[in-house]
């Protein structure tokens, strides 16, 4: 079945996102960008976009492995960093993570995964301060919608250039931009433990997930209408549940209103606020 997710004009999208990165960075008074590279598709695409937008001298990739990170991640992070003509900073987070894990003997995989994502966030933000840069996020639309990301972990950043592109669209953009083939073809993984893959964790392939999301979100179809288009009703319901249950990750925490003007409720300014 041909995918219902639109095939984008990758050349136009790339140019547009490069302008977005440049303008958002400059309007915030910065010239430098820091990006946590994992060896995966999303960070590879964002790194390439940032290099094309800003020039390699202004892009600072940081590789943040944990002892359970695969050798493949290191190899692929190295491949995209060298393809961009950059050198990386490597900072192993094992010691800081294990210092905490030792205090929590019963910690499970999910908690450890969240811990690693938040430690990486703390490190990349510190590195960005060191480089006088902004952190460019690498979340895509598929994971933002189903909440397959860590709140205040990998979601924390100054901007999300590919946050409105589904994973399958990011894959197409990667091919257009010349991201090494091995990164495009390997099964997406957060690499939080050995053998982890996104699709096994989410419970559906990105190909199906993106189509269901596109129909539910972009086309505003009901779950019943999506199922009528040939998607398994149980999968559609599960995807819808993931969207709803992860809404808290996509908004600011509610602020109890007590005054005339409350942040985010009626104190409303753009990020690009000129004074």
């Amino acid at each position: 079945m041909t995918s219902v997710v639109p095939v984008l004009n990758d050349s136009m999208v790339a140019g547009y996102l490069e302008r977005f990165i440049t303008e958002e960075l400059h309007s915030s008074g910065f010239t430098e960008a820091s990006i946590a590279v994992s060896g995966g598709l999303d960070s590879a695409v964002v790194l390439k976009l940032a290099c094309d937008a800003l020039g390699t001298a202004h892009v600072h990739p940081v590789f943040l492995p944990y002892k359970a990170s695969s050798e493949e991640s290191r190899r692929d992070a190295g491949a995209i960093v060298s393809a961009c003509g950059l050198a990386w900073t490597e900072l192993d987070i094992t010691a800081m993570a294990d210092a905490y894990v030792a205090l929590e003997p019963g910690i499970d995989r999910l908690r450890t995964g969240n811990l690693l994502a938040r430690l990486r966030m703390a490190v990349i933000f510190d590195q960005s301060k060191k480089e006088h840069s902004l952190v460019i996020g690498t979340s895509n639309k598929s994971e933002l919608l189903v909440g397959y990301s860590t709140w205040y972990g990998d979601m924390a950043c100054a901007m999300m250039p590919i946050g409105d592109l589904y994973k399958t669209q990011v894959r197409s953009l990667a091919a257009f931009m010349g991201v090494p083939q091995q990164i495009i073809e390997k099964p997406p993984s957060a690499d939080l433990w050995t053998g982890q893959t996104d699709e096994a964790e989410i419970g559906v392939t990105y190909d199906t997930l993106d189509q269901v999301l596109f129909l539910l979100v972009d086309q505003r179809l009901s779950p019943e209408e999506v199922a009528q288009q040939g998607f398994e009703a149980g999968v559609v319901r599960a995807v819808e549940r993931k969207i709803v249950s992860s809404q808290f990750k996509r908004v600011l925490p509610p602020i109890a209103k007590t005054s005339q003007r409350t942040v985010a409720t009626d104190f409303l300014y753009p990020r690009d606020w000129c004074t």
């Binding site: 547009y16 302008r19 977005f20 303008e23 958002e24 690009d272």
Partner: peptide, 8 residues
Amino acid sequence: VGFDDGLG
């Protein structure tokens, strides 16, 4: 042309 936040 240009961006105001995410609007291009």
